[in-house]
């Protein structure tokens, strides 16, 4: 019904493995750099979150092309629902390996839910299991990356105190989910192109970094927060310009409609 109806496999562009490698390696590298570098460099966590957002959006694009039967946003909420459980679990028992433990746990939960969706509910989407693993992993890395931006570290006690206890986790939940679910939801249709969708994901990830940077001023001070937001704004500017250029490339024509007619002109 909604969401473009039943489609087929998503076509074109970069192969899934490339995006997956970018998401996993970039995401984890960003999270670890943000953790071990001084607090002023916590924006690396945000860069990791952007890589993971792009990966998540690509996975959503591939699975939602088959037609989920319900809106695309549901899968983004599922990703962050699984991600929030897995990320705090990983940080609580993993110590320095926390993000990796969280990632593996997310992959297990995602794989089980994907298998249930295909085997028990009978959705019949061939890549459901793999896509759920990817989406859960990407959701976890987005949460961890943005948590590193706010807390400056992925130490469980610090994350609980600076991200969870003051409620920023709810903010991360929604902006992270937006980055994963919105790009395909906004771009879907017969003329959907992978590079345009993924550029929108970069832009959404950059907005998430700006907002998380703003939130980080509470704990990390104004200088680090300003640097976080500055990096976010620069990435956002380039991603938005590129996305607009891609829209103009794909559109039949871009015309100005002028301003609304004034009341005199209407008479």
């Amino acid at each position: 019904m909604s969401a473009g109806g039943a489609g087929g496999e998503a076509k074109g562009g970069y192969p899934p493995q490339t995006i997956m490698a970018l998401g996993i390696v970039g995401g984890l590298a960003g999270i670890y750099l943000g953790n071990f570098m001084p607090p002023a460099y916590s924006f690396f966590g945000g860069l990791g979150a952007i890589c993971a957002t792009v990966w998540g959006a690509d996975a959503v694009r591939r699975v939602a092309s088959y037609g989920l039967g319900t809106g695309v946003p549901s899968i983004g909420m599922l990703a962050l629902g699984m991600g929030i459980l897995a990320s705090l679990f990983g940080l609580s028992i993993g110590g320095v390996a926390g993000p990796i433990v969280a990632f593996v746990v997310a992959a297990i939960i995602g794989g089980v839910i994907g298998a249930l969706a295909n085997k028990v509910i009978g959705m019949g989407i061939p890549i459901m299991e793999q896509a759920m693993v990817e989406i859960a992993g990407a959701g976890t890395l987005v949460i961890l990356g943005l948590s590193v931006v706010i807390a400056g570290s992925f130490d469980f006690a610090l994350v609980v105190q600076n991200v969870v206890a003051n409620g920023y986790i709810a903010l991360i939940f929604i902006i992270g989910g937006m980055g994963i679910l919105h790009p395909f939801n906004a771009s879907l249709g017969p003329d959907e192109k992978q590079d345009r969708t993924l550029m929108l994901a970069v832009e959404k990830g950059a907005i998430a970094l700006i907002i998380a940077g703003f939130a980080s001023s509470l704990h990390e001070g104004l200088m680090a927060a300003g640097l976080n937001m500055f990096v976010g704004i620069v990435i956002w500017y380039f991603a938005f310009s590129k996305h607009y250029a891609l829209i103009k490339r794909d559109a039949y024509a871009v015309v100005g409609t002028g301003l609304l007619p004034s009341s005199e002109e209407l008479q």
Binding site: M77, L78, L80, G81, M82, G83, I84, L85, L88, I113, V160, V164, A165, N166, G167, I169, A170, F173
Partner: peptide, 14 residues
């Protein structure tokens, strides 16, 4: 309270 609430939300969404 914060961790329990966000976990409840996560379980709810799943």
């Amino acid at each position: 309270v914060a961790v329990a609430a966000i976990f409840a939300i996560g379980i709810f969404f799943v």
